[in-house]
Every structure is written in C-alpha cells, then in structure tokens.
C-alpha cells in the first residue's frame, strides 16, 4: 500500500475527531472519534463498498476524501499524488477528478437553481465549455447519459420525482469527467423500484465511463450487488475488507457476521434461526478499550478487552481486525 501501489486512491491512517460542543468554562473537551485510523486503497475501475451503521463514521470518511472537511492526521493519495498537501489551483485541478453523490437528492440540489444550471455549474466553474451554447450542449448530453428528458433543462428540483432528482445529482457529479465517484448512501432515500433503476444506472455508467466508485451504504444487499470488494466499518475503524463473493460466502469478523445475519432476506423458503448480536453500538465519544466490538462480541476473550487487534491479512488478500484469525 506504499507509493509503489497502482491504486487510484490510497487512504492511510486517516483520523478525524470532532470536539463535542462544550461550554466556555469547562476545561475538558470531549472528542467524537468519527474516523479513527482508517487505511484502504481502491484500484482503478474498482467499486469498493463501505458498509456500516449510523454513526460509524462512513459519511465523515466520504467528506474527508473530498476534502470537504480536513482530517486531523493521515494521508490521502490520489493517483499517487498527495491530495492533502494541495492548495489553490492545484487543489481545484485534482478535485475535478473526485466527485460525490449525496444520499438525499432533495437537500443536495439547490432548490432555487434549475436542473440545467445545477449540472452546468461545475462546467462553468472550471471553464470547460468555450461558449454558453457549448455548455448547454454538454448539459443536454449529461441528461441523456443519466436518462433525463431534455426538457428537464429549465425545471426546478421540486418538479422532479425522487429518482429523477438523484439522476440530476449523478449528472452533476459526471459533469467534470471524474475518475472517482464517492457515492454516500445514494439509494437509501429511494423506493425499492426506483432504487433498482438508480443502481443499474450506476453500474452502466461505470462500464461506459470507466469509473471507480467508493460506494457507501448501510444495506449489504445493495453493496453485495454493486461492489467488487467490501470494507466493513464499526465505530470509526475498518474491521474487515474482502472481495464481495468471499465476504458474502464467509464473513470472518464477528461484526460482519452479525451484519449479514441481520439482513432480511426476501425469500421465505430460507427462513433461518438468526444469531443476533446483543446490545447497541457504544458512544463514539468514549469507545471501548481494545477491540471496539468486544462488549457485543459473542467470542470475546481476554486480549480483546485490552489491546485493539490490528487489521492484518489472512487468506486470499483479505484483511480482518480480529484475534480469532
């Protein structure tokens, strides 16, 4: 995972702690350990799925990778360039190559701008079109690519359905011809039948435009369909990374197992006795010592309580942070 890697994106030991609002006079400051030493790489053309429950830090991670917030420490390398060290024009140039699609298309589209303006804005900011007419042409082409009718150009976001709004969000991300798209729960707010349409669109675009995805979701059904590899996050840390077929066939980390066991399977003929993990995720302000999953883990033993297990390779290139392996 060092500089010699041919990864498109490398994240190394990334950390972000948020101070909890404290009063002026209180001396001690509580910190939310949102992202706490996360490392992974994404190869060009790959889809890496990131799964985790609310508050595990997956959205913070997405925002860190786009530099919408600045990390406390760690490295982000994009195409072997140090992304965090970039300032000014250089930053803007590199930013074009990483774009984001948000969860809620309702709040991620400026309600006072027309669809055409929203998608045309990145083109305008980076002066990618020689003229106004050329820009419009580019926007109409993007409409076609994401399956929006051309008359969408002068309509406002509220005039579209949820699925169409998410198509606008995707078109905006595509406008700068990015190499990496970070999709932060892009289908969670959509109805099932629309969700399938948008997932297909993501998959089509990927092959057509040779894109790389970091696809974030809480839904393992969605991730196991779209991802090549899946990383599992718990309380600010990655506990397991493996290729999708292997992870689905044989989840190693007890938390991954718990996640899979909890997914409702739409097939009544396979009704199974579920092994459920007890308890709830602890507060990210004071995460448990040692392995953060140990208070809920059915297999926890002495070392789990004291020293955090490192994310280390086991069989076939998969990584897991657990003393069982």
């Amino acid at each position: 995972m060092e500089h010699s890697s041919n990864n498109l994106l490398d994240v190394l030991n990334l950390k972000k702690y948020f101070p909890v609002q404290t009063t002026f006079f209180s001396g001690s400051r509580d910190l939310v350990h949102a992202v706490d030493g996360v490392s992974f790489g994404i190869q060009p053309g790959e889809t890496l799925g990131l799964v985790g429950e609310s508050g595990c830090g997956k959205s913070t991670l997405a925002r860190l990778i786009l530099r919408l917030i600045e990390p406390d420490s760690g490295e982000i390398r994009f195409a072997r360039e140090d992304f965090l060290g970039k300032r000014g024009e250089e930053l803007r140039r590199l930013r074009r190559k990483i774009q984001i699609v948000f969860q809620d298309p309702q709040s991620s589209l400026n309600p006072r701008m027309k669809a055409g303006e929203i998608i045309g804005e990145p083109i305008k900011i980076h002066s990618l079109a020689p003229s106004r007419a050329a820009r419009k042409e580019m926007v109409l082409d993007l409409f076609r690519q994401v399956g929006l009718p051309p008359d969408s150009y002068s309509r406002y976001p509220h005039e579209f359905s949820g699925g169409q709004r998410q198509r606008i969000g995707i078109a905006r991300a595509l406008a700068l011809n990015p190499e990496l798209i970070v999709a932060d729960e892009p289908v969670s707010s959509l109805d099932v039948s629309i969700q399938a349409q948008i997932l297909n669109l993501f998959s089509d675009l990927k092959t057509r435009k040779n894109l790389t995805y970091l696809f974030i979701s809480h839904d393992l059904r969605v991730l196991s369909w779209i991802s090549d590899r899946i990383a599992v996050m718990y309380l600010g840390e990655i506990v397991e990374i493996a290729s999708t077929p292997e992870l689905v066939k044989k989840p190693l980390h007890p938390y991954t197992q718990a996640l899979f066991a909890a997914v409702p399977i739409p097939d009544p003929s396979t009704r199974r006795e579920k092994i459920l993990v007890p308890g709830e995720p602890p507060s990210p302000i004071r995460p448990p010592s040692g392995c953060r999953f140990h208070p809920r883990c059915p297999y926890a033993f002495a070392p789990c309580k004291s020293t955090p297990p490192p994310l280390k390779p086991v069989e076939n290139n998969r990584l897991v942070a657990c003393y069982l392996y």
Binding site: Q99, F102, N110, A175
Partner: peptide, 16 residues
C-alpha cells in the same frame, strides 16, 4: 447543507 457541499466539491470558490 449538501447542495453547498456539492458546489464546493465541484470546485466553487467561496464568493460563489
């Protein structure tokens, strides 16, 4: 708000 973040990700400068 996410639409502001999205514009920032697209490279919009502060005054914009």
């Amino acid at each position: 708000r996410e639409f502001v973040l999205a514009a920032r990700a697209a490279g919009a400068k502060n005054h914009r």
